[in-house]
Design a protein around this nucleic acid. Structure first.
Lengths: 268, 268
DNA sequence: CTTGGTTGTTCCATTATTCGGAACTTGGTT
DNA sequence: AACCAAGTTCCGAATAATGGAACAACCAAG
């Protein structure tokens, strides 16, 4: 999975890797999984720390994501996600249905949750927002995949791991494509405990009038409270909300957030 | 204000600039305020877009922060800010006092708010978290500055704009240093409508047992509800909370987040 | 349809940066 | 004391970034 993009690409790859650990990480740990030689990795880390994209804790000799990222993300979240536009609609939907509502967008073949309304716990924040999850085995992921342009879909599917989280997880591209077809026909997707046992959801894509994919919307519940048949009747309300969000996005002239297939830069 | 750090530094500077606009921004706007020639800036932007750190909207021909940042920030916020550690303490303090509580850290001579508990308005969030504000004219900023090591303080103060937001704003380094001395003696700071008219606050630093600066904590109110004399009695509870947060941070072995003075890297 | 202006994109020889093997330092272990 | 692992620095070679200038694309006015 070549990154390209010269030094900057390499630096960001390292940044991702550090962030991915989810804990302070030592030089040697990074070196182990790195394609770069010691000296190069060292310099990249130095640069990132100097730029406050990473923090270096001298005592523990470990690197962690830096707070400059938090600051940048504030802008990104406010101006480049559906969250601010969708906020009121999420509030309304969550209040009406009384279940957890998620708003997500596709990022690099993964589901990126950009906002959430939880019925139970009142507020949370980046703690939830910013999380990523698999696309092939979540309702919201499948809902988005189903409405991706075909050429992009090919690429995105090629990036899926098809790891079997539960017994119900779809583990082959063929099976997933079949399911996506159905979702396309119905306009909404279900998560049948495919990602976590006991967790089910119904999800719909958020589409521009022209059919461009903006994001996804889902209502999540547990098998203890509801089953799929209870969820299905929510589809109309879910879709109505999605349409409203899309309309607002349109009037905000929101950019079509279709993910890029990482082309070889200067075409073939 | 030379950035150094080669290409990566330049790319990140451009990223900051785009984020700073707070709205989609066109190439020419960026070019205007950029030290780089057209072709160079163009390439940097290309790279950032390709890396999904920026989004490019072809219709509007404008750049905006990318969603990859949201994802990275999730990690940064979770693992490199005081927020997760302080959460319960903020909850408790906010509930007890019934006013808005802020948690902040220093980032590059500015105040970066990393969490917030608002008494009145229930929700908001990243919309608030991730925001930056001036250090020299906010209570929380001054509280942190007062406990900065002297050499760092010199640098940080040199970065302040001393813009007069209100009639009460401290507008000279000398006056600020005098105030910081007082804050150091008392252990807490006030914002006397120095940043926004009608807004006052009391703030305390969060310090390691050894005196290292971790962050700041503040209780904000309005002149309509309280005055400074009402705020002052809150100091003990504020400080107690700060101590508790510091203790938890210690046991989590939280890295000393003292900002770096951007040294010239390898000397001249 | 032509001209002129503005904005955005590409080329390519030059130049400055990054690369990475190897040597070195530091701190802990047998 | 000798050794080993982890982290840091050096420096010539290799590569990638630079930026001036030419080139498109678009629009408005002549």
């Amino acid at each position: 999975m070549a990154t390209g993009d010269g030094t900057v690409g390499k630096a960001l790859e390292v940044l991702d890797r550090v962030a991915g650990f989810g804990r302070p990480v030592r030089f040697s740990e990074l070196l182990a999984g790195s394609p770069y030689p010691k000296a190069t990795l060292y310099r990249l880390l130095q640069t990132l720390v100097h730029q406050r994209m990473l923090t270096y804790d001298a005592d523990r000799a470990a690197y962690a994501p830096g707070i400059r990222l938090v600051r940048l993300a504030h802008n990104a979240w406010t101006h480049s996600t559906l969250a601010p536009i969708a906020r009121q609609h999420l509030d309304a939907l969550a209040a009406e249905i009384g279940e957890t509502v998620h708003l997500a967008q596709l990022d690099h073949a993964q589901v990126l949750y950009v906002d959430k309304r939880s019925s139970a716990v009142p507020v949370e924040m980046i703690s939830q927002t910013g999380k990523v999850g698999p696309a092939y085995c979540t309702g919201i992921g499948k809902a988005m995949l189903a409405f991706l342009p075909l050429d992009l879909l090919d690429w995105v599917l090629s990036q899926q791991s098809f790891h079997a989280f539960t017994a119900a997880t779809i583990t082959s591209e063929r099976a997933l494509r079949r399911e996506l077809e159905q979702i396309r026909a119905e306009g909404h997707a279900f998560d049948r405990e495919e990602h976590e046992p006991g967790i089910i959801c119904i999800a719909a894509p958020i589409l521009t009038p022209k059919g461009g994919l903006l994001g996804g919307l889902s209502v999540t519940s547990t098998t203890r409270r509801r089953d799929l048949d209870d969820l299905a009747p929510l589809a109309p309300r879910l879709k109505a909300t999605a349409v409203r969000i899309a309309a607002d996005a349109e009037s905000w002239h929101f950019p079509d957030q279709t993910p890029k297939p990482l082309p070889g830069r200067t075409g073939t």
